[in-house]
Nucleic acid binder design. Structure first.
Lengths: 192, 192
DNA sequence: TTACAAAACTAATGATATTAGTTATTATAC
DNA sequence: GTATAATAACTAATATCATTAGTTTTGTAA
């Protein structure tokens, strides 16, 4: 019965991403996923290790994709322009793939080596954008933390409908980043 | 059997807060909560409406407490000093009450009127701190969004062990806020 | 003391993830 | 082309969980 369909780990992951994007990561259950794939729940275990493993995969994929989105966004740009574009791309990613973004922001164990690695990839990408600023390594790392805090916080609050005033959200993000960047210039003693 | 203990909604909420702070909001189950209170799970329904309701109560309490913490922190301070203190108090709250903080950041329905109200309370508190800056209403609202994004993003990343370099985290937060505030001064055309 | 409200209970239901063991299908080796 | 091995699906079973219904017991108020 049930003629075997060509189902592999990647297909399962894609289906999980769709479900998470549609209904939120909280609603992503193995039952719902199996149903979407028209198989029974236990059959999923041929492709994933379990629900925690699946969520980890979502987190990892999310981190990879958000980094790719930022890389794509900064092509041909440098310094403030590049940081602004990267920040906007980050937030846009969270808007377009809300479930995947939730997976990034709700991960329980950042200690996992795979997640550590992709996380470090994001950080090193940001460090490369910051290179032209000629900051010390320590200063640059503080800036990376600041940048990540800003864009993650913005995306997170926006996602949970935390911005309820009828005020343009893109404008809020742009101002946040630009104000910060101007502060950076000031710090460098060369305000433009 | 089971001599009735003086158990009310507040006691139940407190126990839930303890569990959430200890093991994370994800691990907070009615079964664990009932066990902690030495009652059976269904008995909880005499005090709460259900698990979603309990989580909503945690969110509400968290928002109230984080606002209180900020209010307390800005006593005798104004302008940049006050904003910095409020930001630090926010992050400190997330550190000391991680479960309660998770409840704030993982709430599914910000549409709930009660939550809207306490959320608006936080915003109006921040607006009052911003009053001396004499910004237009629109500008001030953008700044509030920026401030919330920064502190929430920082607290959230720190909570999930997102800052893995051996770099002082308090210093990162201070720099983030101060850099932003200097950018604000520059915007106002009166860089100090 | 009686009556009522409420806080606890037991029992039952339905959803969930997970494991064990089975069947059937695909692909590989000969 | 056939036999074999790997594997993708299945059924059955278990444990945990939230929730509802209905019951008992306790504390309080009349």
């Amino acid at each position: 019965m049930a003629t075997r369909q060509g189902l592999d780990a990647e297909t399962v992951l894609q289906a999980a991403i769709e479900l998470a994007d549609q209904h939120g990561i909280e609603q992503l259950s193995l039952a719902a996923l199996a149903s979407k794939l028209t198989i029974k729940t236990p059959s999923l275990y041929n492709h994933i290790k379990g629900l925690p493993d699946l969520r980890k995969q979502l987190s990892k994929r999310g981190l990879l994709l958000v980094k790719e989105a930022m890389i794509e966004a900064v092509i041909g740009k440098a310094e403030d322009e590049a940081l602004l574009a990267a920040g906007v791309a980050y937030v846009d990613f969270a808007r377009k793939q809300p479930g995947l973004y939730e997976a990034i922001s709700a991960l329980p164990d950042y200690e996992d080596p795979e997640l550590k690695e992709v996380g470090a990839g994001v950080v090193s990408f940001l460090l490369r954008i910051l290179a032209p600023y000629r900051l010390s390594e320590e200063d640059a790392l503080h800036v990376v933390r600041g940048f990540r805090s800003m864009v993650h916080g913005f995306a997170s609050l926006e996602h949970q409908n935390g911005f309820r005033m009828g005020l343009d959200r893109d404008e809020s993000l742009r101002r946040l980043l630009q104000t910060y960047l101007r502060g950076l210039r000031w710090d460098a003693g060369r305000a433009t």
